[in-house]
Nucleic acid binder design. Structure first.
Length: 445
RNA sequence: GCGAUCGUAGCUCAGCUGGUUAGAGCAUCGGUUUGUGGUACCGAGGGUCGCGGGUUCAAGCCCCGUCGAUCGCCCCA
């Protein structure tokens, strides 16, 4: 294999079921996004490295070791986006989108991180992303979390997933708590793991979610943020949780859920599953009121989340495979020309169809069958002479002669329009029953 | 960056303590007189056993390296 071309480590090629799962996640995101009034936004995959370096704080491991950075031919430092948020905030500033604040936007696409691949973790992966920029209201947090919650419900993964919620408070709260934590850990530093000793200098909050048993005892007895919350911060968090309760979004408090970077304020959350090993976080986000300032903009409060498409795709029920409705089976050269005409008519009428044009009739019928089509249209010289075709129902095996004239129109009336009306079909499914799509999968399998 | 396990046909795997021309199922392609699919039967193609080196009379099997995969650690914006 060494002489053959191969995919870059940590990238993936998807076909068939994998691609269908991926597409199902994106389609659900698109539907729910519209229900919540989030506009679709498109931003570049590449940005000036400074966009991410400044938003992430220049020094961290994240910036120095885990970004795909390079110089372009003009010598400009460029980075493949390691997240959506910084790029969207940059666009918010450089495109003058402040005039639209508060701005509700959603995006999805490839994300790059130079990491060791493992389960549900790739170097090129894909995220869904939602942001509300320019609102300091707790209602924005609630809105965003409701969106996330409904998305996971519609994907059918909500049952195995819990929303863990915490507050990091306002800057004063955060500083006071951080100082108390450092003091607490310093006092017992001999008992900490080596990793946590390093964290003590770099990122003390992270000791709270250490997996090491030695750290756990110390972390569990660490001071809780609740004792340091300012009145304003406490009120903010209370509004968020009350809003979630009112909206019927289930949550649990996780006082050890933290974010390392200073621009995070108030709400932090993760939707977590136990079904993906060490990579159990399926959707995560929080309030980042300090980020836009870090990019050189005016103080602009904002909240957002991102979710890994691949991880969600692994969790959902297998989606129904895409298939065509009608397969044409022409017999002979004259018939093939006629069949091409019929095929074009069907497709223009919105009926997904294809043609089997190789092999003898048996092979062609086999191909028609394995395409998953509901009908086969058999076009032979006999039929053509009479101005008809044979329409065979591949489920029942019944076959009848049908006039060529108006064939596409007749079929269009009985066959649901397929292919390019996925969004409408999805909405219809949802209206009928939230679980209808999984029901169909169950029946099909 | 670190550790563990793994790497045989497109896919899932078999290949006994190292011993002739490396197998199966599925898939693909063709055939059972180009007019009828889901079954059945016959046949074909497809592998320098990830790659490189070493040990040996002999390596798919043992050793080293390398690349890749998987799972975990670190990290997780």
């Amino acid at each position: 294999m060494s002489s053959k071309v191969q995919a870059i480590r940590g990238t993936q090629d998807m076909l068939g079921e994998q691609a269908e799962r991926f597409q199902a996640v994106v389609a659900a995101f698109g539907r729910v996004r519209r229900l919540y009034g989030f506009q679709r936004v498109e931003v570049p995959v590449i940005e000036a490295t400074a966009v991410f370096a400044r938003s992430l704080g220049e020094t961290t491991d994240v910036v120095s070791k885990e970004m795909y950075s390079f110089e372009d031919r003009g010598g400009e430092p460029i980075t493949l986006r390691p997240e959506f948020t910084a790029g969207i905030c940059r666009a918010f500033l450089s495109e003058g989108w402040q005039q639209h604040a508060p701005l509700k936007v959603a995006a999805h696409g490839p994300i790059f991180r130079y990491e060791r691949p493992q389960k549900g973790r790739f170097r090129q992966f894909h995220q869904l992303d939602a942001e509300i920029i320019g609102s300091d209201a707790p209602a924005a947090d609630v809105e965003l979390l409701s969106f996330a919650d409904q998305l996971l419900r519609e994907l059918g993964v909500a049952d195995g997933v819990t929303l863990q919620l915490n507050t990091l408070g306002d800057p004063e709260t955060r500083e006071a708590w951080r100082a108390a934590l450092v003091e607490h850990f310093q006092a017992q530093r001999e008992a900490l793991s080596e990793e946590s000793l390093a964290r003590l200098d770099k990122n003390p909050l992270r000791i709270l979610d250490s997996k090491d048993a030695r750290d756990r005892i110390i972390a569990d007895s660490a001071p809780a943020i609740d004792d340091y919350l300012s009145e304003a911060a406490a009120n903010f968090f209370a509004s968020v949780t009350a809003g979630l309760d009112a909206a019927g979004v289930a949550w649990t408090r996780n006082p050890r859920l933290v974010r390392g970077l200073d621009y995070y304020r108030h709400t932090a959350f993760e939707f977590v599953t136990d079904r993906l090993g060490a990579q159990g976080t399926v959707l995560a986000g929080g309030r980042y009121d300090g980020l836009i300032e870090a990019l050189g903009g005016p103080h602009t409060p904002a909240v957002g989340w991102a979710a890994g498409i691949e991880r969600l795709a692994m969790l959902i029920e297998r989606p129904e495979a895409e298939r065509i409705e009608v397969a044409l089976v022409p017999l002979g050269t004259a018939a093939e020309a006629a069949a091409l005409r019929i095929l074009a008519d069907l497709r223009r009428s919105g009926i997904a169809s294809d043609m089997a044009f190789r092999g003898n009739m048996k092979k062609r019928m086999q191909r028609a069958d394995s395409s998953g089509a509901r009908y086969a249209i058999i076009v032979g010289d006999d039929e053509l002479a009479r101005g008809e075709v044979a329409l065979k129902d591949l489920t029942s095996g019944k076959q009848e002669a049908v006039a060529l004239d108006g064939l596409a129109r007749r079929l269009a009336a009985t066959i649901p329009r397929g292919g390019h009306s996925e969004l409408a079909a999805g909405l219809a499914d949802h209206a009928a029953s939230p679980s209808s799509s999984t029901d169909r999968v169950a029946k099909a399998s």
